[in-house]
Design a protein around this nucleic acid. Structure first.
Lengths: 144, 144
DNA sequence: GTCAAATCATTCGCATGCAAATGATAATCC
DNA sequence: GGATTATCATTTGCATGCGAATGATTTGAC
């Protein structure tokens, strides 16, 4: 009975499971992010970066774009609004919607952070060759 | 000026960044996990699975094995203890340490869950071929 | 042996992240 | 048009996850 006999549940090694590795890889990325951008979290930056791309949108729509559910996006946006990086407004036609958009300061902040974000991506992928990095992104995209 | 001109910060596409994709992939995995194992979270299962492997250990040591900091591991262990899946005890020699080990029920629970955990891994990797899955695990391990 | 440094556990505060419930508004069906 | 359904936002509760501070104990330097 070898340690990785598949018919033996010793063959279940936590360290080799995709979920465990994903969690660890994500953790390392967040740590690298924090070491470069201390005053903003990855989700906060994601919200700002996406708002820069799409301009004003509703909270829900923004959430769909950055993969956050309604409850989460509300918290993120509230914190960004409290810091003056984001502006909230009512939708004139559909009164259910809460419009979100960058303030001037938010705009400036994103522009400044994008180069750092590039560095963060680079550092996260540093253990890989360019070819490996491309493969990783492609495979990860398939399981999203 | 094409949309992905690298000399232009429009070239920063959130969707293509490793951090964003890692977060999404992890989210999908957690959702798959929850659909198969409703009454335990991935970190809780990780703690049980690792305790099965190593037997009794200190909280800190367990944390190192499953990549959780001290504060996080305490919360996870407390919840497992409250459910009777884990037993706590003082270390006789080193009085700083808090020993953690599986109870009989914890043991039974892990044994029952391992097959489900295999299914979860399979389903998470379902969009990939066996070869792609192996490559993904290998590349992810490099950036952990 | 004693004092300083390291280790272990705990606690607090803050930030995701999600499920479920609620209320307001809009869209659809008839 | 009126009732049903769907959508948007909010709130609550729970579970990670981490930084920072604290206290207890142990180890190491001398």
């Amino acid at each position: 009975m070898s340690p990785d006999d598949p018919g033996n549940d010793r063959g279940y090694r936590l360290q080799d499971q995709i979920g465990f590795i994903l969690r660890k890889a994500h953790q390392r990325h967040v740590a690298i992010f924090a070491s470069h951008i201390a005053d903003l979290t990855p989700p906060q930056f994601a919200a700002l970066a996406k708002l820069r791309d799409v301009g004003e949108t509703s909270q829900n729509q923004l959430g769909a774009l950055i993969a956050m559910d309604a409850a989460t996006v509300k918290g993120v946006i509230d914190r960004l609004a409290a810091r003056g990086l984001v502006r909230l407004g009512k939708h004139e036609v559909d009164k259910r919607r809460l419009l979100v958009g960058l303030t001037e300061e938010g705009q400036r902040t994103v522009e400044q952070l994008v180069p750092l974000a590039r560095t963060i991506t680079e550092e996260t992928l540093a253990p890989l060759s360019a070819r490996e990095a491309a493969t990783l992104l492609q495979l990860l995209a398939k399981i999203c």
